[in-house]
């Protein structure tokens, strides 16, 4: 088997219309297509399953049959680049945005982005978060100029849709979407006690936190969103394992 043979085999697996690779055999040639189909099926079904596991809330929103049809189209277009399937699905939220049958659920791409962020938070490196005591010795001037690096597990997802409420509704076996207000919601994901914690933020808090996570000073972040209580927000961030270190 030369590289070209592997490539032909792979192409025939990915494209159901491609001819079977030359040189295959099975007892009774009539059955060769059925046997090759086992591999084709394994590739597609297992990757659809990987997406189903990674996007449980999107799946609950659209139903299993719709989800699998949508995921199968994505799998046909994008194969994983590595065997770490935890990372597979990076492009799925954008794909959902272009998937015409899903256009009646315009919040679906953001919901998928949040589930992707959830998986990233879950898989991120362990690291001791900046302790609450870290800022105690600073004077007001030092504190104002203070900048931070983000904890590797923190993710912020901002949306014009109620993604946190949708997520919470789907944690129950019988979600009641009729109760939703359909207001914009931002979400922060962190791992303060080892497990992933999802918290709803108001838009001002999200803007302040986003500025700090991007490395801006407390002073600059507070200047952007003067209506927030910077001290209280900083306390909230320290309590929730959002920050890693003070940037010197």
């Amino acid at each position: 088997m030369r590289t070209a043979d592997y490539e032909r085999f792979a192409r025939a697996l990915c494209d159901a219309d491609a001819p079977l690779p030359d040189g295959l055999c099975a007892p009774g040639h009539a059955t060769l297509a059925d046997r090759f189909a086992v591999y084709r099926n394994n590739v597609h079904v297992s990757l659809v399953e990987a997406l189903a596991e990674g996007f449980p809330c999107v799946r609950a929103q659209v139903g299993d049959e719709f989800f699998r049809a949508m995921a199968r189209m994505h799998v046909q277009q994008h194969k994983p680049s590595t065997p770490l399937l935890t990372h597979y699905g990076e492009l799925f939220p954008d794909f959902i945005g272009t998937f015409e049958p899903a256009s009646t659920l315009p919040w679906l791409p953001d919901l998928a982005r949040m589930e992707r962020a959830w998986a990233e938070c879950w898989a991120a490196a362990d690291a001791a978060a900046l302790p609450v005591t870290a800022l105690r010795t600073m004077n007001a001037g030092e504190l104002a100029r203070c900048r931070f690096t983000a904890h590797p597990a923190v993710r912020l997802v901002r949306s014009q849709w109620p993604i946190a409420s949708l997520w919470e509704a789907h944690q129950h076996t019988q979600p009641d979407l009729g109760e939703l207000d359909w207001l914009a919601e931002d979400v922060m994901l962190t791992r303060p006690q080892h497990e992933v914690l999802l918290q709803r933020l108001d838009a001002d808090a999200a803007r302040f936190i986003e500025a700090l996570l991007q490395g801006e000073s407390i002073e600059t972040a507070a200047g952007r969103v003067p209506q927030v209580d910077a001290g209280a927000m900083l306390g909230f961030m320290l309590d929730n394992a959002t920050l890693l270190e003070i940037r010197r």
Binding site: A10, L13, C14, G23, S46, T82, P83
Partner: peptide, 22 residues
């Protein structure tokens, strides 16, 4: 077995020809 090409992981255990070369 093999499971894909560089940058294209197919998530299955695929068969190979048993030759001197392989």
């Amino acid at each position: 077995a093999w499971s894909g090409l560089p940058r294209q992981y197919l998530n299955d255990l695929l068969p190979l020809a048993y030759t001197q070369e392989s």
